[in-house]
Simulated assay, not measured.
Amino acid sequence: MRVCRGGIGYKNGIPYWFGEDSNDIFITTSVEPSGLSFYAQMSDDDWRSWIERFKLEATQVLGFDVGEPEDGFM
């Protein structure tokens, strides 16, 4: 089962969107009790662009607002 559209696959059970942890640029995530936890290795500008697009697409797919706890989302 894919965690998110656009994922490229799994390595040791961990989903990846770009590259793998052996590459210079990658995004990975884990499922925690509080929700998805992302780890990314890329430029800050690329990360901000990617996570904003992720939240917009997740909001459309799920039918409710998706955001970060520090912004008031639970």
Score class of each variant (00 low, 15 high):
Arg5Gly: 11
Gly63His: 09
Ser37Leu: 08
Ser22Glu: 07
Ile14Val: 14
Phe54Asn: 03
Glu70Gln: 14
Gly35Lys: 08
Glu57Asn: 14
Tyr39Arg: 15
Leu56Ile: 12
Ser22Lys: 06
Ser30Pro: 02
Ile8Met: 06
Val31Phe: 03
Glu70Arg: 14
Asn12Val: 01
Phe54Met: 10
Gly35Val: 10
Ile8Gly: 02
Thr29Phe: 01
Arg48Leu: 10
Arg53Val: 05
Asp24Glu: 13
Gly13Val: 08
Ile14Met: 02
Ser37Ala: 12
Glu68Thr: 13
Phe73Ile: 11
Lys55Ala: 08
Thr29Ile: 07
Arg5Glu: 11
Ile51Trp: 01
Thr28Ser: 08
Gly63Arg: 11
Val3Glu: 08
Trp47Ile: 03
Phe18Val: 06
Asp46Asn: 12
Gly72Thr: 12
Gly35Ala: 10
Ile25Cys: 05
Asp21Gly: 03
Asp45Phe: 04
Thr28Trp: 00
Pro15Ile: 02
Ser37Asn: 13
Ile8Glu: 03
Val66Trp: 02
Met74Pro: 07
Phe64His: 15
Pro69Tyr: 05
Arg2Asp: 04
Gln60Asn: 14
Ser34Gly: 13
Ala40His: 03
Arg2Lys: 13
Phe54Asp: 02
Ile14Ser: 01
Gly63Lys: 09
Pro69Phe: 04
Arg53His: 06
Asp71Phe: 04
Gly35Tyr: 03
Gln60Leu: 12
Gly35Gln: 11
Glu57Thr: 10
Asp45Gly: 13
Ser34Ile: 11
Lys11Gln: 11
Gly63Asp: 12
Asp65Gly: 12
Ser43Val: 06
Ser37Asp: 10
Phe64Glu: 15
Ile27Gln: 00
Asp46Lys: 13
Met1Cys: 08
Phe73Ala: 13
Asn23Val: 05
Asp71Val: 04
Val61His: 11
Gly72Ile: 07
Thr59Glu: 08
Ala40Gly: 11
Gly19Gln: 00
Leu36Pro: 02
Ile51Ser: 08
Leu62Asn: 15
Met1Pro: 05
Tyr16Ala: 01
Tyr39Asn: 14
Val3Tyr: 05
Met1Gln: 08
Glu32Phe: 03
Arg5Asp: 11
Pro69Asp: 10
Ser30Asp: 05
Arg53Cys: 08
Ser43Ala: 15
Gly72Ser: 09
Trp50Lys: 12
Asp44Leu: 14
Gly6Ser: 06
Val3Phe: 04
Val3Ile: 15
Asp71Ala: 13
Ser22Trp: 00
Asp21Ile: 00
Asp71Lys: 14
Ile51Cys: 04
Gly6Ile: 00
Gly67Cys: 06
Phe54Lys: 07
Pro15Arg: 04
Tyr16Phe: 11
Ile25Met: 04
Glu52Pro: 00
Pro69Asn: 10
Glu70Met: 11
Phe64Pro: 07
Ser37Trp: 01
Ser30Glu: 09
